[in-house]
């Protein structure tokens, strides 16, 4: 991991004696570790549960399993008629395409709202915000009817195409806030040199916005991965299921459920999004700090 100490720290701690600095560091780490434990306990419990014998999961109070077994993983992976490898592939396809779509389409829309002037801009922005406010439960059925007429039901299209059409106002709004924070002089200078808006967007704004674009990528990937309601409504065949949808079929409140399998697969389902996060968060850190942007 790039652990480049940024200049803020160097500046901020210049006034401290070495002993003070050491003390501060120890204190910070202690605090962070304490919070980490609090944050992570539930996850550790889940990890332990995935190695526990089935009938011990809900009756045993201790976090340590009486015996360790990887049965649940083996059982879970092929526990449904379709193997989890299929679900993972589907989730990767949907999440990957969604990241691409959101980064491109939302940044374009945000660029227009943040850096360009045109008639009725505020009206369209308000419309965009409005789409954020309506609970999805009431647009679900009209939307289903629409996608059905398009013949998209039981394909990935209803889950992916809206991302390429900037349907998620959250990301547009997020990018708008960041694009507006970039120094104005940059595009003014570029404009003097005869740059087109497209070049300003592609050559200046986008490269300078790596941290926030990484944020968009991370959130899109994770949220798409975690989403189950969209896949639940639009996907019917098991071979098109996503991981989250697969997970939900492990438990049914009316009959036999496989909780061990559920926990085991839950743990596995976290691995890709965690790795995605680890990888993309480097862009968060590097971003501005390493481009050496100055006002």
């Amino acid at each position: 991991m790039s652990d480049v100490p940024n200049r803020l720290t160097v500046v901020g701690e210049r006034q401290l004696t070495p002993t003070q600095r050491k003390l501060l560091s120890v204190l910070t780490h202690t605090l962070l570790l304490a919070v980490s434990v609090f944050m992570l306990y539930p996850l550790l419990w889940m990890l332990a549960a995935s190695f526990r014998p089935e009938n011990e999961i809900f009756s045993s109070a201790s976090i340590w399993p009486s015996e360790w077994s990887v049965d649940a993983y083996v059982r879970g992976w092929n526990g449904l008629r379709t193997s989890f490898s299929v679900f993972f592939t589907n989730s990767f396809i949907i999440s990957g395409l969604s990241v691409l779509g959101n980064v491109l389409a939302c940044s374009m829309a945000a660029f227009a709202f943040a850096r360009l002037n045109f008639k009725f801009k505020n009206f369209w922005f308000a419309m965009m915000l409005m789409t954020l406010m309506l609970p999805y439960q009431v647009t679900l059925i009209p939307q289903y009817v629409l996608f059905r007429q398009l013949g998209w039901v039981n394909t990935f299209l209803p889950l992916v195409v809206p991302k390429f059409l900037a349907a998620d106002g959250f990301f547009i709004f997020l990018l708008v806030q960041f694009f507006r924070g970039l120094p104005k002089e940059l595009d003014e200078a570029a404009q003097m040199d005869g740059c087109s808006p497209w070049r300003i967007y592609w050559k200046i704004v986008m490269p300078l916005s790596m941290p926030v674009l990484a944020t968009v990528a991370i959130f899109t990937f994770i949220w798409t991965w975690d989403d189950f309601f969209g896949p639940l409504i639009y996907l019917s065949e098991m071979k098109t299921y996503t991981v989250m949808l697969g997970l939900r079929t492990f438990t049914d409140s009316t009959g036999e459920s496989d909780y061990g399998g559920l926990f085991a697969m839950s743990v596995l389902s976290l691995v890709p999004i965690f790795l995605f996060f680890l990888f993309f968060q480097r862009l968060l850190i590097e971003g501005i700090a390493t481009t050496g942007m100055k006002r």
């Binding site: 449904l80 049914d252 009959g255 496989d258």
Partner: peptide, 12 residues
């Protein structure tokens, strides 16, 4: 139908 994998196996 609703149910778990056990029911699904039998149904299929």
């Amino acid at each position: 139908f609703w149910g778990g994998q056990g029911r699904a196996d039998r149904t299929y």
